[in-house]
Amino acid sequence: MLTKRIVPCLDIKNGRTVKGVNFVDLRDAGDPVVLAKQYADLGADELVFLDIAATLENRKTMHDMVLKVAEQVNIPFTVGGGISSVEDVDDLLHCGADKVSINSSAVKRPELINELSKKFGSQCVVVAIDAKEVDGKWLVHLAGGTIPIDIELFDWAKEVEKRGAGEILFTSMNHDGTKAGFANVALSKLSDLVNIPIIASGGAGTVQHFIDTFKEGKADAALAASVFHFGEIPILELKEELRKNNIEVRL
């Protein structure tokens, strides 16, 4: 059986992880490569690196980081942040990234999804969608979830699938940072609507939240940052609990 995936997300700035990470005794918790290896050893199924300060100047730094991660880590990883062209993706895949995640650039120019899936295959194209529920409507937001635009989450999800996205990473701005659980109603609707895998993001606080998002939210994968980085939820224990709840995981 295909298992549900647990995906830690690392925010990167100038080639270093931001936000404190202190889940184990690491000689350098700011080094994304050391952290990535540690996560792979601790049972993470996949990793996401998000370049939160993506600029032209630090692109080279990001490439170096991707290269080092690919060299040393034996599980798949996705790179996102500041990707807006076929060339950007070509560079990252050449450095050894398995998938790339695009967000604002896909909203601004949806053809980018077609171009990427045609050239590199759908399997490496993740479309990240940040959305917020306002008056009963899920609106897509840009720029890290700060700017609302007049596109509805479910319409956009259908469109990105049609254009060749291989996966959707959906972050609920209503839930992100709350540690009160994932947006399972919206997630479940998304999962029924499109036929590509959905990664749930935003709201992880307890083991139960993961159980809920896989059962009620029908998510294929769940992404979280701080609960993993601060050791609040050790990945192996999380997976053991998931298995006890009849959710297929890799252990």
């Binding site: 298992t3 996949e46 759908s122 996966e167 036929n195 590509i196 895998p197």
Partner: peptide, 13 residues
């Protein structure tokens, strides 16, 4: 077929 999500993505036995 479209009875399952395509692509299959992730860890399987």
């Amino acid at each position: 077929s479209n009875k399952v999500k395509v692509p299959q993505m992730g860890w399987n036995t």
